[in-house]
Design a protein around this nucleic acid. Structure first.
Lengths: 183, 183, 183, 183
DNA sequence: AATGAATGAGACTTCATTCAT
DNA sequence: GATGAATGAAGTCTCATTCAT
């Protein structure tokens, strides 16, 4: 792992653990075993660093989602694959979720970063369009459906991160969302 | 409006407009036409003040939701009333949403505040239980359903706050969620 | 002496002694027996503080020079009074000269400050004009004459601040400059 | 131009353009097309580099002034040659003046550098002595006369660098100074 | 000899909190 | 109770200098 990646990793961990507030750049430097100046060699500012983490996660997410797509699979099944993949991605990388949940609504993430992040769900958009053409998915504004699905992902992930002991099944969740959006 | 409320209001407006970071207590004092010391007479610290806003909103939300409940109304209709009421509450009070969206996942909101906030949705919990007894609502863990519904509210509100021009109907959204949770 | 003046005085002394470079705001605070924050209550930034010193000196200089003017005095005598007064002013306040000599050409002093400083020599300008009308002073561009006289003041002050032991008389200097500018 | 000279030139340009504060060594390295380390091979520190520029300019000035001297020329004419030469030197090399004006009074220039700089005006000193012997120049302390002349040079150069449109003639200035110092 | 990534001390500035009035 | 000037710890960021390559 090169220095830039080490910094990103250290920053991610501290930001999730303590929040942006409580994570001075000096702490990141310490955790990454570098001088503070080194961080500023790679990232113009703390905000740029945070955006870089955001984009990196989104790009990793995109790779995962892009691998899901297959032309011939029926819409419902494909949807389930997508849904499972996202959930699985953030479940395997709990720290990514911790970061996203905290930063999503923050003014620190620039529109540019968000635009890049949007690319990750290209496949889902195509899926929705196809589903609507086949009258399998409700004829509702794409953006609204995406927001809805995204919201459900977020809330589900929050739920499974809750420290209660109930049995948490992904099947239920997928069914909830599919029933919601299906025609 | 008494002094305490004036402070809460001023703080709310500034926090939403500028974010927590960019809202010094001095600015709140100025906007509330008080001295900084006065704020500290009412609230131990800035964090306590922010939690007080959180709790105040949640209590107002609770009042609105409590008024919705009527014994005799069928589950589906009652659900729609609840859903419409929450959305309407935060649509009428956009600033409340701005605050909640920003603070929800923040480590500043204490577990105590969150526990109090939980009271607001008592009615919804009862509704879900009843719906499940009547086999109208899916037999899924209450907490999961609540989280799901809450997430949908959040994502819908975010969507209608987006500056796009598409036609934003609450009916679609209510249907999405109902279809999701209904048996 | 109030707090603001204490700060200005402390800053002046440190700036002259160590240079701008080597004078952190923290040192000024320490010398002025205040917290650093207090300095920023009175002056937006270090640069603003430095400009405030500049302006304060120039205003004090103006007071001294304004007191010199008397309608009826002949040009040559008045000139000598002016010249003696400026030199005397900066000789009594060596520290002022140390400051001015260091900062005069610095980009830190804003055009606004310089414009204010310009007021200090109003009287001299009038004197030059009168002298030229009476054909006592050479018919050379006002600005050039002013610059010349100012330069001579600066260089004389530098000379008398030099740690050599030669006998330093103001009379010579005044004669030099008068001979230069007289018709 | 060898590497050392390239560095000096780049540094000079940046220092004049941006000021000392705003000229990091890294910027100098970039402009000189070298690594930062290379600069430190030639100059112990940034301050040493700045002093080297000072000395280099002074040495160039010395060459110019030394060329002026001719045994047989009368004092007044020789003075005018000297004066014209200095002004011309700094007018042709405006950047030198920018540097000197900014650095002259700075604590960065060491007494050693200043002593070397003093050599540049050897000829002028001889001239003054001769003028005084011949009772052509006022019998005033050499140092004072030198300082006076130097000050007038500085102020004249500042004046001609001012962005006003008045007609700027060197003749006036030379006359001013000559009238000042002549018996 | 040349390089420039790495370093970290230290600069400026902000702001939550206190306390004398 | 109300006030807001004073405080100084702590934050972000810069940059002169070093040293392994």
């Amino acid at each position: 792992m090169n220095k830039k990646e080490t910094i990103l990793k250290a920053a991610l961990e501290l930001l999730v653990e303590n929040g942006i507030h409580a994570t001075p750049v000096s702490a990141i430097a310490k955790k990454a075993n570098t001088g503070m100046g080194t961080i500023y060699n790679y990232f113009e500012s703390k905000e740029v660093l945070i955006n870089a983490i955001y984009v990196a996660i989104k790009e990793e997410e995109k790779e995962v989602l892009d691998a899901v797509f297959k032309e011939e699979i029926p819409v419902k099944v494909l949807f389930e694959h997508y849904y499972t993949s996202v959930i699985s991605f953030f479940t395997k990388n709990k720290i990514y979720f911790g970061f996203m949940d905290q930063l999503q609504a923050s003014p620190i993430i620039t529109p540019e970063s968000k635009a890049i992040g949007y690319n990750a769900i290209e496949g889902v958009i195509k899926l929705i369009k196809k589903g609507k053409e086949e009258h399998i998915i409700k004829n509702i504004d794409n953006e609204e459906l995406l927001q809805f699905i995204g919201g459900s992902v977020l809330s589900y992930l929050r739920w499974i991160h809750m420290p209660t002991t109930s049995n948490k099944s992904l099947t239920n969740q997928t069914r909830l969302v599919w029933d919601a959006i299906k025609e």
